[in-house]
Write a protein that binds this DNA or RNA. Structure first.
Lengths: 190, 190
DNA sequence: CTTCTAGATGAGAATGGATCTCAATCCAGA
DNA sequence: TCTGGATTGAGATCCATTCTCATCTAGAAG
């Protein structure tokens, strides 16, 4: 049974910084499934491909929609249930990570392999999610946690505030600025 | 309407470290409501009292249940809707904070006044939530965020891992230890 | 290659946290 | 005390996620 985050790093240790090819990722996934005595199905593969081809944070619903919108996928019907099941399976295996931005919408996911650990800043004006990484911060964090006698498996730092762009736009003042209109749709071209 | 987190710190600046009395808290709440042109109702007061009398993380549902279980409250019927509404109102005002532990259950809340900022460590073995605070960490964090050009309003650090107690209990080994209650797999029978 | 079967899927029902509706009620300023 | 707009209660509703179960299939065995 896969452990929450430890499983990452047990089997599929492909590059920590190099961006792995889809082939490598697929192999790692295959290996993971095999280790768990689970099967490699078309659906799982398709979802894996899609989420690794997407360079933004996606919800299960969004994935589901896209799995249907695309022409190629039309041949393969993937149910909502399977999307959710697969997503949670991939989360266990460390292939994706749930974000848990305190949004109204559902959980967002991002792929993790070849994606160095990072934290998130969520702009309360425009809704954009910005990733950042800071070595010093990570170190101090790890030290602080260890100091508590806690053995860390994973952590998540979310910061809410106003992004640089919105600050410049001047909306960041005080009044009741309308908190953006939905989401910053930066649809990656896939 | 109050803004997301900025409203905190505008009106009710009572002690940052001393534990405020219920009276002080109530006054601050009153002041906050007044500033927002909102009314001080029995329900709001009751919920405030209850959550400030509770020194653990509670869900809306739990509060709702308790508001009914108690003898005194029996006179005052508080609906689920009001609990949710009030909770979110108090979150806006900075009187409570939503936790968003990635648990199966709903959102958990904790009161904030007289409760220095802290982070959370969630034990994946026993499920306990441990609070901790580290000055150095906070400083480095603030610096790192500012370095990104981001204007922070609030942040939340959650750490998942194994608590000291569970480590001692030896359950923390490696091979497929049962991760406390919850099962990893979503499949039904096993 | 064919069989066989436990794991996997699809469709849709079920679940459950959170929100919404709206008539009745209640603060709080005049 | 009066009055109007804010607030509430009860339950409907929304919606993300999970569950059920009949059917299908990956993949090991023969």
């Amino acid at each position: 049974m896969a452990r929450v985050g430890e499983s990452v790093g047990s089997g599929h240790r492909l590059g920590r910084r190099a961006i792995p090819t889809l082939k490598k990722i697929t192999e790692a996934f295959e290996q993971f499934l095999h280790g768990q005595k689970l099967r490699l199905t078309k659906q799982r593969l398709e979802i894996l491909r899609l989420i690794y081809a997407t360079h933004k944070h996606v919800s299960a619903e969004e994935l589901y929609d896209r799995l249907h919108g695309d022409g190629r996928a039309s041949a393969l019907r993937i149910s909502r249930a399977t999307v959710y099941r697969t997503l949670s399976l991939m989360a266990e295996g460390g292939f994706v990570q749930a974000l848990e931005i305190g949004r109204d919408r559902g959980t967002l996911y991002e792929h993790t392999l070849g994606h160095e650990h990072h934290d998130h800043m969520i702009c309360i004006e425009c809704g954009r999610i910005i990733e950042f990484h800071d070595d010093e911060l990570e170190q101090v964090q790890a030290r602080a946690i260890k100091r508590q006698g806690f053995r860390e498996v994973s952590h998540r730092l979310n910061v809410w505030g106003v992004c640089a762009r919105c600050q410049k736009a001047g909306k960041s003042g005080s009044g009741g600025g309308p908190v953006s209109a939905e989401r910053g749709r930066d649809q990656a071209g896939d």
